[in-house]
């Protein structure tokens, strides 16, 4: 990374409760263009909730989130503008099960970007080729394996030309033998220079691909550092014990 970094997402003192459970405690972080950030931590530490507040799938109670200069608030225009720029890939794929793979990928560009059908579909085909699924375009999601479905979901998010891609545990619902095909696509994306925030339990992937590691615990960011320092020499005991528990993974 050269030159000065341009911030793309800024979270300032983001706070969120689910009833009595304090999910996010005054979380602040800035993410820069082109950066690949792996967000790790134990279950229930708030990492997925944090990711979901960034495109308002969860509403934060207080604090401020700015995406590409647009403040995330109750203004629906802002929200739609942000959602156009931020792509998301879910743990459970969430493909539209009544639409073909091709329609899954071409729907949003047609509806949101008002692209002509031929243009949207030719773009969808080239994205499906990129994730290695061109020959599955006419099938329905249920006919594909989990790994293939997740690759389609990545293509679907890419079809909107997002400035940032959010990944919410993209490999956690997959059979082990399918994890690698999805990680391979994500690796290729990371090297292509797209900004990525990845909530993951794949420590090998985080170490190899991420520029930055954020470690969540009990609703706060405990560590925000480089992969080298995080894996070799974590500062906090919580991070040390977390790493020792997942160490077999990398």
């Amino acid at each position: 990374m050269n030159g000065e970094l341009r911030p793309i997402i800024e979270a300032r003192r983001v706070d969120k409760r689910f009833g009595a459970f304090h999910a996010l405690k005054d979380v602040s972080a800035t993410f820069y263009e082109g950066q690949v950030t792996a967000i790790v931590g134990p279950s229930g530490s708030g990492k997925s909730t944090f990711l979901r507040t960034l495109n308002r799938l969860e509403m934060h109670d207080s604090g401020e989130i700015v995406v590409d200069g647009i403040v995330l608030n109750d203004n629906l225009k802002n929200l739609d503008a942000i959602r156009r720029e931020v792509g998301m890939v879910f743990q459970s794929f969430n493909l539209f099960s009544h639409l073909t793979i091709l329609r899954n990928v071409s729907l949003a560009p047609m509806r949101v970007r008002k692209m002509r059908r031929e243009d949207a579909e030719s773009k969808a085909m080239s994205l499906l080729e990129r994730v290695g699924l061109k020959n599955q375009a006419a099938k329905y999601p249920v006919q594909l394996s989990g790994g293939q479905q997740q690759r389609v979901a990545i293509a679907r998010a890419l079809a909107m030309d997002p400035k940032v891609l959010l990944f919410d545990e993209p490999t956690s619902a997959l059979d082990p033998e399918m994890v690698n095909e999805v990680l391979a696509v994500m690796r290729e994306l990371a090297y292509s220079g797209i900004t990525m925030l990845v909530v993951t339990h794949e420590m090998g992937f985080a170490r190899e691909v991420a520029d930055r590691i954020i470690f969540f615990d009990e609703g706060v960011i405990l560590e925000d550092t480089t992969p080298e320092r995080f894996f070799a020499n974590p500062e906090h005991d919580r991070a040390k014990s977390f790493l020792s528990q997942v160490r077999h993974g990398y």
Binding site: N55, R84, V86, M88, F96, L107, A108, R111, V112, R156
Partner: peptide, 10 residues
């Protein structure tokens, strides 16, 4: 699927 559609900007 609703979340996915909303996240895509629909």
């Amino acid at each position: 699927q609703v979340e996915a559609a909303r996240a895509l900007g629909l």
